[in-house]
């Protein structure tokens, strides 16, 4: 291999490396938001069970469920629409049950299903568990 060819090869490798590096940085910087709706639920359980797990030992339950995709089923006790147009469905208890928040974009996407939901109905929501305050909060929910 001539000296000229070697330099050209090095330049090509350098250029490809540079493009790959910028591409990776661009992807990481603009990486898509996590979409729980396409994930398989790690835990599928009744809202009563989730409430019981958190009430029994909040630390252990937080360790187990925090940030996990969960499918939780329960009786709807209250429905609220927030200022940002997301909706909160409280399961089993309006104050201290499981609060499932559906983001505004998903409220539009699942409007047909959600508009028919009334308190007293039983429904399953899949979302990301964000922990417990008074209620157990499940965010980025979609109805199943």
């Amino acid at each position: 291999m001539t000296k000229k060819k070697t330099i050209r090869l090095i330049l090509w490798i350098f250029l490809i490396g540079l493009i790959a590096a910028f591409g990776s940085i661009y992807y990481v910087f603009n990486m898509p938001r996590r979409n729980v709706s396409v994930e398989n639920a790690v835990y599928s359980l009744q809202a009563k069970q989730l409430i019981s797990d958190f009430r029994n030992d909040e630390m252990i339950a937080t360790k187990k469920y925090l940030d996990q995709a969960i499918a939780v089923t329960g009786e709807i006790k209250s429905i609220r629409t927030l200022d940002n147009h997301s909706m909160v469905f409280s399961l089993e208890d309006a104050m201290v049950g499981v609060s499932c928040t559906v983001d505004s974009a998903d409220v539009v996407k699942y409007n047909t299903k959600l508009s028919q939901v009334k308190p007293g109905a039983s429904l399953t929501f899949k979302g990301r568990c964000s922990g417990m305050l008074m209620d157990i909060q499940v965010i980025n929910c979609v109805p199943e």
């Binding site: 910087f29 603009n30 990486m31 940030d67 964000s130 922990g131 909060q137 965010i139």
Partner: peptide, 16 residues
């Protein structure tokens, strides 16, 4: 007041 820190939404997923 009480808030769960994972409930904060950012402009970019990476920031979150």
């Amino acid at each position: 007041f009480s808030v769960l820190t994972t409930s904060f939404k950012f402009r970019r997923a990476l920031m979150e």
